[in-house]
Design a protein around this nucleic acid. Structure first.
Length: 366
DNA sequence: GAGTCGTGGAG
DNA sequence: TCTCCAAGACT
């Protein structure tokens, strides 16, 4: 494997590639909020937010998050509820739970200074091989690879690497290549430049090779196979589940919500009580849900007929949720808490349950 | 290594 | 409408 890589790099002018790439980057880089300084904390937050998430989506979340938690100390001192609320709608919520825990760790064990060694930074929760390299290179200018999807796409084309980038072990090939090619003088600009190139020029479909600053160095462009790379195997389709959810209110117009478990899907977020229902004839979703609410929460309710449906698409699941509205006639157990409309603003909900609330607002409850 | 873990946008 | 995502990490 290493031999094969050395062979590819034999006729590759590393110095000229670095210069062409970094020169282009310094001239064309986007003005992004996490590029205003080199605060390791802000770099860290941005890298966590950017995992599997588009730049345009992250920008407003990043600005609001830094505004609310400007420093390590501020985030370390915050309670989990408001941190989760700041992440509401971003998805992959374990990211922020891990970030919060890791920031507390840095605050207590590293005097509030983000560590600058691969060994220490890798121990922090939520910091994997990519984020480790990104923080070390961007915040501390240390020549460590930061191999994400952009880097694998760009270098698969530059070096004509035909390994499947969907396979976890393939990342090591690109880390090894990056070690060889990365600029020792400006690793920060180099790593960001590769990702910027992947985002703006060397895109997944129809790359803009005629605008590419490093096309002279690109093996795939020379061979005319840039559209064939990278190789990426397909992932399986999400599995559909039929769900039913209830918006329960009482005489004071308070709503009854439930906190999800601290692990797994949508961990620690709040939701309207819901269940997976069986598609059996003779036992309606409404009936199944009503029995569930009584047995699980001790809630005595009479549900109205179907008020609407909400679809929630995850990476591996699809919830098809039927929405029912009803008034509670008693006091449920403490697995359900009653909140006013005003108090709802403090709790973080999945997007699907924000849609459920809107169906409640739009319904005629009388 | 394969499955788990969100969401909104683009083609 | 459907597919594929987008600066991955964890189990």
């Amino acid at each position: 494997m290493v031999n094969e890589l050395q062979n590819k790099l034999k006729d590759f002018s590393i110095q000229e590639f670095q210069q062409d790439l970094i020169t282009w980057y310094l001239a064309e880089k986007r003005d992004l909020p996490w590029r205003k300084d080199q605060d390791p904390y802000k770099i860290w937050v941005s890298e966590i937010m950017l995992q599997q998430t588009r730049v345009d989506t992250v920008i407003p979340y990043f600005n609001a998050f830094i505004d609310k938690f400007p420093t390590i100390e501020a985030l370390a001192a915050a309670n989990e509820e408001e941190v989760l609320k700041a992440w509401e709608g971003l998805g992959y919520y374990s990211r922020v739970r891990n970030l919060h825990a890791a920031v507390k760790e840095v605050n207590e064990s590293y005097s509030g200074i983000v560590p600058n060694t691969p060994e220490e930074i890798s121990k922090l929760k939520g910091v994997g091989p990519y984020t480790k390299g990104a923080i070390l290179s961007i915040a501390y200018n240390i020549p460590e690879p930061a191999v994400d999807g952009n880097v694998m796409r760009v270098f698969s084309r530059i070096l004509s690497i035909w390994d499947d980038i969907a396979k976890p072990k393939t990342r090591k090939i690109f880390e090894e290549a990056t070690y060889q090619i990365i600029s020792k003088e400006d690793p920060s600009s180099f790593n960001q430049a590769v990702m910027e190139l992947g985002a703006l020029i060397c895109t997944p479909t129809s790359p803009s090779c005629l605008l590419c600053p490093v096309r002279e160095h690109c093996s795939a462009f020379k061979e005319g196979v840039q559209a064939e790379l990278p190789i990426k195997s397909k992932k399986k389709k999400p599995k559909p589940l039929q769900m039913a959810a209830a918006v329960l209110y009482d005489q004071d117009r308070r709503l009854y919500i439930h906190k999800r478990p601290s692990t797994g899907l949508l961990a620690n977020l709040w939701e309207y009580p819901n269940m997976e229902v069986q598609q059996e004839a003779g036992n309606t979703y409404r009936k199944q849900l009503q029995e569930f609410l009584l047995s699980t929460y001790g809630a005595d309710v009479e549900l109205l007929e179907l008020s609407g449906t909400v679809e929630h698409v995850f990476s591996h699941l699809i919830w098809n949720i039927s929405i029912f509205i009803g008034e509670v006639n008693n006091i449920p157990n403490d697995q359900l808490i009653a909140v006013t409309e005003k108090e709802l603003e403090k709790y973080a909900f999945p997007v699907s349950h924000q849609k459920i609330y809107k169906i409640y607002l739009g319904s005629d409850k009388s």
